[in-house]
């Protein structure tokens, strides 16, 4: 901090205009991006019958906790929460390990397999066999009714690998050279020299993987939907969401009395959104310091 204020003193006029303009611009961005979230929050605390009238902005008109009570009245979400946490943590660790290792080998311009493996991986981003072959594969691998179906199939992700690699490409090669001269093998170089320098990108990828794992519900539905000890929080919330929503197709039956009663309280939906996103938002500050404050090469060197 002291250093920063010192550098303020040396500012030119242009720099100062830049800073002021930047702060004004960013404040506008702040307001614009904060609004949707506040809106969801406000609606989630608003009486669901009143919400229908519309016009809720960032403050509930008729405050209530009822919407949250509704969600938790559907039964215990504790197991589902645990599974979600577990898949997020295990999935992130596995993915980071696998992707960073592969990324390192691809960042080595002298690696023989570099070209082939790059092409082999990148194609996976653009081709897909579809739902049925994927389902049959999981069945044949014995991954149905199993926790591992959450973390294993997506463990090696080409997109993340290329992101990590492009970060590694920017690291000075001299570091590796000197380690090599000290007799370190490739794995040691990766683990001891490269990985510590990659914290910003690893934190970013960890965030991507974690959010992806946390939000996933379709794999639960496909493979573990009938196994209540393996369902995830997102899946359970999805169930609640759907049963509060009147079935679109059912409505085709023109005037069936029972369906007249299925209403979709938007406030409950918003409360579900909040329950979904708040836990994952809490992860962010832990990771954020790695890419806002920054790691410096100098710090590592010394």
């Amino acid at each position: 901090m002291a250093k920063l204020s010192a550098s303020y003193g040396r500012q030119t006029l242009g720099d100062r205009v830049f800073d002021i303009g930047n702060v004004i611009f960013m404040t506008l961005v702040l307001i614009a991006t904060l609004y949707p979230f506040l809106n969801v929050l406000a609606v989630s605390f608003n009486d669901s019958a009143d919400t229908v009238r519309g016009g809720i902005t960032i403050w509930p008109r008729e405050f209530t906790l009822e919407n949250y009570k509704v969600i938790f009245s559907y039964g215990t979400l504790v197991t589902a929460f645990q599974i979600s946490v577990l898949r997020t943590i295990v999935g992130t660790i596995l993915s980071l390990t696998a992707c960073s290792m592969v990324a390192y080998t691809l960042s080595r311009r002298d690696f023989q397999g570099r070209k082939f493996i790059s092409v082999f991986l990148v194609l996976t981003l653009y081709v897909s066999g579809g739902l049925i072959p994927g389902f049959l594969l999981m069945k044949n691998l014995g991954l149905m009714n199993s926790f591992w179906v959450y973390v294993l199939p997506g463990m090696v992700n080409a997109f993340y690998i290329f992101m990590i690699r492009s970060f590694m490409d920017n690291l000075p090669y001299a570091l590796q050279e000197s380690a090599k001269l000290d007799g370190a093998n490739d794995f040691t170089i990766f683990w001891r020299v490269i990985l510590p320098l990659c914290k910003p990108v690893l934190a970013t990828i960890a965030l991507f993987v974690a959010v992806g794992q946390w939000n996933a519900w379709f794999d639960t539905y496909l493979y573990n939907g009938s196994n209540s000890s393996l369902t995830t929080l997102q899946f359970e919330l999805m169930k609640i969401l759907q049963s509060t929503t009147s079935g679109a197709d059912q409505a085709r039956g023109s005037n069936i009395v029972e369906q007249m009663r299925s209403v979709s309280p938007d406030s409950v939906k918003m409360a579900i959104t909040i329950v979904t996103i708040v836990p994952i938002l809490l992860v962010y500050p832990f990771l954020q310091r790695y890419f806002v404050q920054g790691m410096t090469l100098g710090a590592v060197k010394s």
Binding site: D50, V52, S246, A251, M260, S262, V263
Partner: peptide, 16 residues
């Protein structure tokens, strides 16, 4: 419209 599509806003009207 069918009644079940306007149930919710009608409930709000009645509540008011």
């Amino acid at each position: 419209d069918q009644q079940w599509e306007i149930d919710e806003p009608e409930a709000a009207l009645k509540a008011a």
